[in-house]
């Protein structure tokens, strides 16, 4: 398949360097020389779309290779806007990434925001070895709340697949939200406006992984309340004033893969800012690897 962009990062003279970078309309990469202090060994790649967003019918594919021993961040400068679709037309983005041994790829985008009637599908495939590390953030919002658009897009589909070197599926996740189902998307969201997923995998990010798991447990320990600790069951509670409200943020973490090499955190939140804060706090210690703290 012909791709619209490709970047190769590899170790040159002991330091991560871009050895290939190509992109064509409507995709553009910006790779600043210097993001963090000079002693950090990490390449920051910003993806940009001409027109500030994804237009109906766009199909953008890119390849990213992070070779043995090198580190890279793939990020955006602002949220990815998906404009309304013309008829049944679908917009799509595809990413195919390979991560070498002792290499790290951090995919740290801003959220995807689908406008009313937008139809959007994205697929990200990662091929990793046992020594590869990956931090993947994938998130989306309900739309342009400011304009009163809340979960009004027609279709959103996000697929993330992680394969081990031998082709063994390690982590497969597809979320599909489509208008015209048995129930509306807004109903399924119970007032939540943002859905996020964070995958943390591999040896370089082991400490962050353990820390995030602990933190999520602590956050949720305070948010969840058993109705059975009071004398009244849930059936009674609906008759009285509702004292308890839904949490601003719900997060849960799970371990996956052989010997628990990966952790996935899922988040639902009432506001985009809450998720930015969560990501900023939980990923802050990546500064030592990336040069600057993510989402700051």
């Amino acid at each position: 398949m012909e791709v619209d962009g490709a970047v190769v990062v590899e170790k040159v003279a002991g330091k991560s360097a871009v050895t290939r970078c190509f992109s064509k309309y409507p995709l553009k990469f910006i790779i600043p020389r210097k993001v963090g202090p000079s002693k950090t060994d990490c390449i920051w790649i910003y993806t940009l779309n001409y027109g500030g967003g994804i237009v109906s019918g766009d199909s953008i594919s890119c390849e990213l290779t992070v070779k043995d021993g090198s580190n890279a961040v793939l990020t955006t400068q602002a949220s990815t806007k998906v404009y309304k679709s013309r008829g049944e037309e679908l917009s799509e983005q595809l990413l195919e990434a390979r991560i070498g041994s002792d290499a790290l790829l951090a995919v740290l985008p801003d959220p995807v925001t689908c406008f009313a009637t937008a139809r959007y599908a994205q697929k990200q495939v990662f091929r990793v070895g046992s020594g590869s590390s990956l931090v993947l953030v994938d998130w989306f919002t309900s739309g342009r709340h400011g304009s009163g658009e809340i979960w009004e897009f027609d279709l959103f589909k996000s697929t993330n697949q992680i394969f081990l070197e031998d082709g063994h599926p390690l982590f497969f996740d597809t979320v599909l939200l489509e208008r015209g189902g048995i129930n509306t998307i807004i109903e399924r969201m119970h007032g939540y406006q943002v859905i996020a997923m964070v995958v943390i995998l591999g040896p370089k990010v082991k400490n962050i992984r353990d820390q995030v798991r602990e933190n999520v447990k602590m956050i949720m320990g305070e948010q969840l309340h058993s109705p059975f600790t009071s004398a009244r069951g849930p059936q009674m509670k609906m008759n009285s004033n509702r004292l308890l409200t839904k949490p601003e943020i719900i997060a849960s973490s799970s371990v996956f893969g052989p010997m628990g090499i990966g952790t996935v955190v899922r988040i639902a939140a009432m506001e985009t800012e809450t998720v930015y804060r969560f990501l900023q706090q939980q990923l802050a210690s990546m500064e030592t690897l990336l040069g600057v703290p993510p989402y700051k």
Binding site: R188, Y192, I195, I250, R266
Partner: peptide
């Protein structure tokens, strides 16, 4: 083509292991 259609459910169910009493 297998997929999740209710991501909130997935998030909430993941919290089960954090419940103090269950």
């Amino acid at each position: 083509e297998a997929c999740q259609t209710v991501p909130l459910l997935e998030t909430v169910q993941g919290c089960h292991s954090c419940l103090f009493s269950k």
